[in-house]
Amino acid sequence: MAGDDGATPLIQAEGLGKTYPPRDRRGTGFRAVAGIDFHVNRGEAFGFLGPNGAGKSSTMRMLGCVSPATEGTLRILGMDPARDGRKIRARLGVVPQDDVLDPDLTVRENLTMYGLYFGLPRRVIKERTERLLEFAQLEEKAGEPLGALSGGMRRRLTIARSLINEPDILLLDEPTTGLDPQARHVLWDRLFRLKQQGVTLLLTTHYMDEAEQLCDRLVVMDKGLIADEGSPQELIRRHSTREVLELRFRIDEHEQAAEKLHDLVRPGEGERVEVLPDRVLVYTHDGETTLAAVTAARMTPITALVRRSTLEDVFLRLSGRTLTD
């Protein structure tokens, strides 16, 4: 089958776009995705990183074949969503942003119901349900109503549910938003296992640490467009320095200090200063040395922190804004 030979990508988008119709006669349409190109290979973990409103969820809905593209072409598993939506969806697993689980049903029944939607025989549903309950670490909650689950458990159940049809591709929209750190790590571990089993993962996130943990390759999205594409390390290398010196000054010294810092960096080697409302970021190859130079210049930051560059810095460079703006 096309898309399965390993040579052609599993997913290919060219000039893909989505414009929503206006809500009333006077309104204008909204172009949430403004023509993007990307491809995803089998077995990859591919991320869409960007702030709220960047067009990530709209892209995910098009990939899930529940939202027709209004421009460009999209091929998933070698098929066209406009024509073969049913066939594609039969091989997808979808984890939506909100856990839309059925509150009237038990944990196990939620899985059963989803299995029915895929037309699986009862015997198969039963066997997979037990396996997935174990995978999601929910065996003890199997017979309980949904109300008995914590946020992290609900998320794991939603992921377990999306696996009932043993999908080739798993679409995860903001998989860990709203979860506490421990629940996030449990979830990351589960997703990592899936990846090792050969499931292709596509996820959106506005957490840079999540993208760095999970994604082999990602695109940075902003205002409906792709700003750049690559592995987390590539992107960091391309758009940032190895280290970042974060400095905080007293409010009345903030501007002045930022001015002086410009003299300490070597723009020819990619070093630069980024002034944020609450702090100044100095992009440098050697944070400690730069910090020593700051002290030598008789500047007195309230706090100083040397850290590695992250995707957050990449995003700041590409869009001029922080991810949480």
Binding site: V66, R89, L92, V100, F118
Partner: peptide
């Protein structure tokens, strides 16, 4: 929405 993510139209 849950049903729409499956093969159902």
């Amino acid at each position: 929405a849950v049903a729409a993510a499956t093969p159902l139209e």
